[in-house]
Amino acid sequence: MSAVADAIGAAVGDPRVSGWVRAVIVLVVGLVVVRGVSLVVRAIAMRMAEPRRATLLGKAALYVGSLIVAFAALRETGANLSVLLGAAGVLTVAIGFASQTSASNVISGLFLLGERPFVVGDIIRVGDVIGTVEAVDLVSVKLRTFDNLYVRIPNETLFRSNIVNQTHYRLRRIDIEFALPVREDIPRVRELLLDVAAHDPRVLDEPPAVFMIHGINDAGLMVRFSAWVTRENYLEQRTRLYEEVIGALRAGDVQLAWPHRSVVSSVQVADRPAFDAPEAPHEDAR
């Protein structure tokens, strides 16, 4: 390769030309080799990691390799790399200051890729946004909400926020809360509701459905009925379970309790009003 470049330089009559020819050859051959290496890296990573990570690794190999090839080609032209590297360092600092947010997003994205709190297809809640993960990119995550909105969340925001992954586990629990009058026959209500769970094949037999009283307030007894379903059935089953519970309570003639307040007035003297009537204004006050 070097001999060919020297011969071309001699033929042109300028020794600098041979350096440029060598640089072009290094660039072309080097980029082809780097491209091949990145494909191999990606193929190997595909076997060990998810496609998204494998693609990122392949791209990283391509960019790093291309940079090395570019420096090698410049070296062939006789360029002073130390000056170039110094300039690149200053430029990097300048760009770094200018792109703090982007860099932060990229670094957060790398951490999220490593931590994997969710994957494409999961349903997550970030703040007050709930949606299906459409894409996990280096600087942002794209969600599609249930009302079909496209939401882009920067990785830095995700990294700082509480992420609730609603589809991480295979099972979900449906909680139905309501109030019962204190006088209600609680064992009977418990039996009615557990019977609902037992006769709905989509409600899991195990973990078992649970009926519990978790407080008393101005409405009455606060009751919670909890049943487990698979995450695939969760949305549909939640509505169905409400329907079944309401149906069972109606069929069992069980009344729900609502917040109420009893006002008791005691009249000690028959001719005295319960509340003092406002006095009539004096004449001179008019």
């Binding site: 295979r170 099972l171 629990r173 409600v203 899991l204 037999d205 195990e206």
Partner: peptide
């Protein structure tokens, strides 16, 4: 007759269904 679904193991586990 469609039996009720059930789960073997803890709710945070891998199942099986």
């Amino acid at each position: 007759y469609r039996p009720s679904d059930s789960w073997l193991g803890p709710p945070s586990g891998d199942g099986p269904l």
